[in-house]
Amino acid sequence: MLTVGTVVLGVEDMERAVSFWGTALGYVRRDDATDFVVLQPSGGPGPRIAFQRSSVPVQEVPRVHLDLYAGDAADQAAEVERLVGLGARRVDWPHYPKDPDFVVLADPEGNRFCVIDTSR
């Protein structure tokens, strides 16, 4: 049976991406590689996130993105502010439903991701 081991994002600035996502998720570098960097949870098992250099432009409406889970609306709002403070930016997303349970952000590389209020 297959399981998801690592989600890989293309980036231009490797150290900026590693710094942002490492701090955002509390992840640590698996090793000292520089061309393909893997971050893993610092406290044990869990999905990994990796970065590879890419010169392909970021997709405005990506076919694949990360969903980060927050416990409730207050947690979601606090996490969005924390992530913006780390360098993420809010995305003017034209596809929001009437009462969304998610907020669309972009990391410092422009990769889109969502912060989800899982209490809904």
Rank of each mutant, 00 (worst) to 15 (best):
K98V: 13
D32R: 12
A106F: 07
V38H: 11
F36T: 01
P47N: 01
D107P: 08
V80I: 09
T34C: 00
S119F: 01
V61T: 11
V37Q: 09
P41S: 04
L25Y: 06
D99F: 01
I116V: 15
G85E: 06
T34Q: 13
R63H: 03
R82D: 03
G5D: 14
D72F: 05
I49Y: 04
V104A: 09
A33F: 11
V18S: 08
K98S: 13
Q52W: 14
R48D: 10
V38K: 10
M14R: 06
G43L: 02
S42N: 09
Q52T: 14
K98D: 15
R63I: 02
V8Y: 05
G71F: 01
Q59C: 01
L9D: 10
L39E: 04
A73L: 12
P62T: 10
G5A: 08
V104D: 01
E81R: 13
G26W: 04
G87D: 11
T23C: 07
V38T: 14
G110T: 12
P97Y: 01
P94S: 02
V61P: 00
R29Q: 14
H95K: 08
V11E: 08
A70P: 03
P57H: 11
Y69R: 14
D67P: 12
Y96T: 02
L9V: 09
A70D: 01
E15K: 10
D67Y: 07
V64L: 13
R89A: 04
V18F: 07
E60N: 04
A70V: 03
R53Y: 09
S119W: 01
R112V: 11
P45A: 13
G26C: 04
M14T: 06
A106I: 05
D67I: 08
E60K: 03
E60M: 02
A88F: 11
P108E: 05
Q76T: 13
I116G: 03
Y69M: 14
P62H: 05
A78R: 15
V7Q: 06
G71N: 11
T6D: 10
P108H: 06
Y27I: 11
G110P: 12
P108Y: 07
P45L: 09
D13W: 00
G10C: 11
V64W: 02
V61E: 09
L83N: 12
D99T: 13
D72W: 07
G26R: 02
P41D: 05
V37D: 04
D67G: 14
G10V: 12
P57R: 14
G110V: 07
A50P: 09
C114N: 10
